Simulated assay, not measured.
Amino acid sequence: MAARSSKRQDSECSTAPLADDIYERKACNSHCTLVVLCSVLAFFCAGLLAGLATMWVYFGQQIDQLRSAYEKLDLPGHGSDRWNITATVDEAVRMLLEQEEDQKAAADHTQVGPPIQTGWSPGSRKPMAHLTGNPRQNLRKHHGEVKLRSWESEQGLATLANGMKYRGGNLIIPVDGLYYIYSQLSYRFLNENPEEHSDKDANIFQLIHYTFKQSSYPEPQLIMKSSRSTCWSKRTEFGLYTSFQGGVFRLEKGDKVSISVSNAQMISFEESSSFFGAFMI
């Protein structure tokens, strides 16, 4: 009995240290978990603070840019009760966006072969036009001044480009600037029955070539003129004369340029002999 009691006591004594070891391990695991959680929380807080600091710096820069843009504005009513802060901020933002778009466009711009444009915009190629004679014109005999209204603007050698427009005999200027304006008219005298007239008889013509500019003034302004008096014998079968004129003029958007002539029925409206045009320089 004494031996059995001794063995039982030894068994109980041997199990006591094992229970203490398990308790210490559990405490250690709990401590490690707490340290890990604290570390993760500290890291998260540090990242959050860094993000907030970055956002603070970014918005500070944006506010400085808005303030700089605002200082450049000349706003009516500034300093009074009528001053609209919302409109001021909107205008400052618009200016910043336009500045960024201009910088991006300048960085991305590449020079390529120019397509013919239907409208003009700043930075595009310069407006130009070359109109040619239209043989289908039916001009009655008229010795006085007549405006030429049927130039060819689309077919053959004719060209309209980069915003220049044509309507009813008028070239319409799309933008302010200096333009070279030119025109050429070829006159041809035909005598159907030259042998029926004597040498004393003659045909006398005044061939006058006008270029007009029409702007905001009610009456067109004469800007170029060339003239010649011809005397062709009635025994002559035909006679030829060419009138050319050109010059540089300052024109404004919406100005109209046109050509008028005397004895229009004598003009040869072949595209290579009679033409009219303008281009920006």
Rank of each mutant, 00 (worst) to 15 (best):
M1F: 03
A2Q: 13
R4I: 11
R4L: 12
K7C: 06
R8I: 10
D10S: 13
E12T: 07
S14N: 09
D21A: 10
Y23K: 05
K26S: 07
V35Q: 12
V35M: 06
V36T: 10
L48F: 15
L52A: 15
T54V: 13
W56G: 15
Q61V: 07
Q62K: 06
R67F: 04
Y70L: 06
P76C: 04
G77Q: 05
R82K: 14
N84S: 15
V89A: 14
D90C: 11
D90T: 11
A92D: 04
V93L: 15
M95Y: 02
L97G: 07
Q99C: 11
E100H: 12
D102P: 01
Q103A: 15
A106N: 14
A106V: 09
T110C: 12
G113K: 13
I116T: 15
Q117S: 13
Q117V: 03
T118P: 04
T118D: 11
W120L: 02
P122V: 03
G123R: 05
S124P: 02
K126D: 05
P127I: 00
L131N: 01
G133A: 08
P135V: 04
Q137K: 05
N138R: 12
R140C: 05
H143W: 12
L148N: 00
L148C: 02
L148Q: 00
R149E: 11
W151Y: 06
S153T: 00
L157S: 14
L157V: 05
A158H: 02
T159C: 14
N162F: 15
G163H: 01
G163K: 01
M164E: 01
Y166S: 01
R167L: 10
V175W: 02
D176A: 10
D176F: 01
G177S: 06
L178Q: 13
I181S: 00
Y182L: 04
Q184T: 15
Q184W: 00
L185I: 13
L190A: 08
L190K: 11
N193S: 12
E196C: 08
H197P: 03
D201R: 13
N203G: 14
N203S: 15
Q206N: 15
L207C: 13
K213L: 15
Y217D: 12
P218Q: 06
P218L: 08
L222E: 13
M224E: 06
S226L: 10
S229L: 06
R235A: 04
E237W: 05
G239D: 07
G239L: 08
Y241E: 12
F244I: 05
G246R: 03
G247F: 03
G247V: 07
V248Y: 09
G254A: 02
K256N: 02
K256T: 03
S258H: 00
M266C: 09
M266G: 03
I267E: 00
S268I: 06
S274G: 07
F275A: 01
F275K: 01
